[in-house]
Design a protein around this nucleic acid. Sequence first.
DNA 1: AGTAAATTACGCACCTTTTTGTAACCACGA
DNA 2: TCGTGGTTACAAAAAGGTGCGTAATTTACT
Lengths: 124, 124
Amino acid sequence: MKSLVSRCPIEEVMQILSGRWPTLLIYYLKQGTKRFSDLRRDNPTISHKMLTLELRKLEDAGIVERTEFEGYPLRVEYQLTPAGHRLVPLIDALGDWWETTSDTSAHPGSTDAEAAVSNTASRD
Amino acid sequence: MKSLVSRCPIEEVMQILSGRWPTLLIYYLKQGTKRFSDLRRDNPTISHKMLTLELRKLEDAGIVERTEFEGYPLRVEYQLTPAGHRLVPLIDALGDWWETTSDTSAHPGSTDAEAAVSNTASRD
DNA sequence: AGTAAATTACGCACCTTTTTGTAACCACGA
DNA sequence: TCGTGGTTACAAAAAGGTGCGTAATTTACT
């Protein structure tokens, strides 16, 4: 399924972090332990299926740990592994870089003609 | 153009860096100025369409600068902007993080089950 | 000399592949 | 029956590949 055979570690990380969900999920999970339904509440635009898929991917990557509790309505908890926690500041650094760049002198001539992406009114 | 309407800068960066090409292209561009055809030679599996699209995206993001020279067979050169150069170590850090983590016995994506599934015989 | 071909960096249209969404279903016990 | 976490099948959408056309000028062939 995901035997990454790329010569370059960067390619491998990007394979895991690419897409809109991985970093978002990590962002929410750094707040602490979350259950499946918590994460769905955190970002309501992710579909049930995507959430399972992405969580599985992060699990396989050793970023997230899944803990299943016996019980009536089956409870599962997700949390960052130590490696996952070490990843957080690196992701944050990217965010900082972006803020700095857009701030200073990056893309000046932004013809933001086709901006208008529908904002799904979720909030932080 | 960075007309991304997300509340979170991390989401915005990931929108740019997601996929297999952006970081690869940055990787090659950090070696210096490259022409379109150079980049195609650097990684021959990218199609000309993808290369133009990705370069355009990186340009809009202020990571890459495009210089067009007048002339017969039209020459165009690409190079990292200062912001692009500042991005490089951050990406490298992700690569380092991945190497470190995979080292500490995490998630080698190859559970024997799935290893059996895909034999990497003739894969592009 | 005249015409055809090649070169470089694309744009565009068409088609395939991959990813993602939708929805229905499973199990369990209150 | 509901709610939990999850799977599967199918449909829609997005990503990506292929190949042709274009510009302007040099070179290659006849």
